[in-house]
Design a protein around this nucleic acid. Structure first.
Lengths: 334, 334
DNA sequence: TCAAAAGTGTTATCCTTACACCCATGT
DNA sequence: ACATGGGTGTAAGGATAACACTTTTGA
């Protein structure tokens, strides 16, 4: 019972905050967007923030039900697909200047929703590549990688790790290889690994804000890669992006982002928007049709800019037919 | 700031408990084991319980550091690989008879550790298939599936869902197909889905304990499938098993369960123990060697019961060479 | 001698990838 | 006419799965 009293002590510790964060994704005009709340709400300060809410077990039976409830209340949005990502609990990340480092435990969620056209209260859709410009390879390798990130990360890798840095199984240079594919291939799923590297190297605004010493080492260049977010919300978003990119391949999640009827072109462009790479058209179509993921509805769409396209719908039956139904697409150039 | 006060209210809600649970896995004698604490500790009652501890942000910088600390203190064990699984927060699952339904938020972890030979304080190793006998297909399809589970689940699927049951995207019969492969193939990764089905159908002791009405429908047969655990710990264990089985295929996790030098036979038997299926020997060896996952050390082991076997070690370099290094093994019969 | 496990080699099949090419519509 | 997207066919290459067979030890 000593355990119990220690437990109660931990719960009543005024340092702990506990809440839910949601990365709510929608695709518009071939661009993935996430829902961010207006600055100033819920202690987010000057920065874009993911919708945040407390969890009250008295009101809601499960975490997910609680999440759906306050998202609805805060933004008016009904969520479709919802999935828990990770529970974040690092201390010191959220220290605002002049404030003691507090501790926030936040359970991060990924949510997908169709067409983002509704009137929203106190929130708006923001393109996710604004926060991660190095993740969009659809126009080829992003300039920001070649010009800003790679040279700085290489310099950082050559510096010795500081004493207070935790011992890691991989050395810095190897982590660059794995994360950014420097000297190897770029793996579009490793969004979080890349963000963590930039954070540790002091190349994102959050690192400077949290008082990381590495952030001071870049002098007045002040790189500020990508648009920063409140607290550790960009880390949550990175987790969401990586998870979504990975899960697309073995779970039929894209269809949560599309209307009930769609062309194969729209399907492909949505997948490309999420994964940040271009796909081979012919093979994609074959894969998706003969994989039994979709079926023609019989209708056609003439608003395609070319020959009218057949409309398709998602075949819900695949999930009981195949163990891992998804778009097993290789990030193949064109 | 209305958000803030609601937040504080949620934190100080005496109904919320917050803690960490760990499914600590080790493989001995070709059997996976998990670490369970003696009954009576930490409110576990009569049942086997996963090691549990509170999280104190004052003492520990991150959740994972906190976990390692109290596991060390409670059991004397130093953890190797540690990975967060899921944060569980369903209400009503833990209602002990005569007690009001409280609410436990617990962050579940998966941990892997080598050889389980040490003296442990207040904990012991328990074979994981004792809790999930239907998950071990190494001697062919388990009898308990054919004789106990399948007939009862089929009967359950034919009954109409009760009114208070949440609306689900799949009907019961389809969920059986997906989870247990009734009429299709058995997917060894879907451990949690299967446990949830058995729970909903009232076929595990936890369901009766939680007062699920379905549990009463089986009369005095009292099936009691598998060994029950405290609270929702069997659900956490099911999550851990599914995650480990899945991750084995694209991450080199097995080596965390093996000594630094091992024979290919030992490697195969460890993979088989985890996945619960048998593998084709020749192809396994080819896969593992030419996949660059291991390299010979030059030594041989004569204690194999047959011709002496070469000893191998894990090639750490693969993780920087290949994006998803793992044992992509199909659950092929022998 | 036999059981048990270590090894090697070969073949058929399927899936992925890449390339080449034609079709229908709007401007 | 041409740009844009829709749609079909096929061949090369690599990975997988299944099979057959030899070798080396301990009991």
């Amino acid at each position: 019972m000593a355990e119990l009293s220690r437990l109660i002590e931990a719960i009543e510790d005024p340092q702990i905050e506990l809440g839910l964060n949601a990365a709510i994704v929608s695709v518009r005009d071939q661009q993935p967007h996430i829902l961010v709340v207006q600055p100033g709400i819920a202690g987010s300060g000057e920065w874009d923030a993911l919708p945040f809410g407390p969890f009250s077990p008295r009101a809601h039976r499960t975490l997910e039900i609680g999440l759906r409830a306050w998202v609805k209340r805060q933004t008016g949005l009904d969520l479709g697909y919802v999935e828990q990502l990770y529970t974040f609990g690092d201390r010191g990340r959220h220290a605002e200047p002049g404030e003691a480092a507090s501790h926030t435990l936040s359970v991060g969620y990924l949510a997908l929703t169709r067409g983002a056209g509704e009137e929203l209260l106190g929130a708006h859709w923001s393109p996710w590549y604004a926060y991660f410009p190095w993740e969009d390879w659809r126009q080829g390798k992003p300039d920001i990688l070649t010009q800003e990130i790679e040279p700085r990360l290489k310099a950082w890798a050559e510096r010795a790790p500081s004493a207070d840095e935790p011992v890691r199984p991989l050395r810095r240079a190897d982590r660059l290889r794995v994360g950014f594919g420097i000297g190897a291939g770029f793996d579009e799923e490793k969004v979080l690994e890349r963000y963590e590297l930039l954070y540790e190297a002091g190349l994102v605004a959050e690192a400077a804000r949290d008082g990381r010493q590495a952030a001071g080492q870049w002098g007045d260049e002040l790189p500020l890669l990508g648009r920063p977010m409140a607290l550790d919300h960009r880390r949550i978003l990175a987790t969401a992006m990586g998870r979504l990119r990975g899960k697309l391949k073995y779970r039929p999640l894209v269809f949560e982002l599309l209307p009930p009827e769609f062309t194969l072109y729209a399907l492909q462009k949505t997948v490309e928007a999420i994964s940040g790479t271009l796909l081979h058209k012919q093979n994609f179509r074959r894969l998706v049709e003969h994989g039994g993921l979709v079926e023609p509805t019989g209708n056609v769409s003439t608003a395609t800019g070319g020959r009218p396209a057949k409309l398709y719908r998602f075949r819900r039956e695949v999930v009981v037919e195949r163990p891992a139904p998804g778009l097993r697409v290789k990030a193949g150039r064109v």
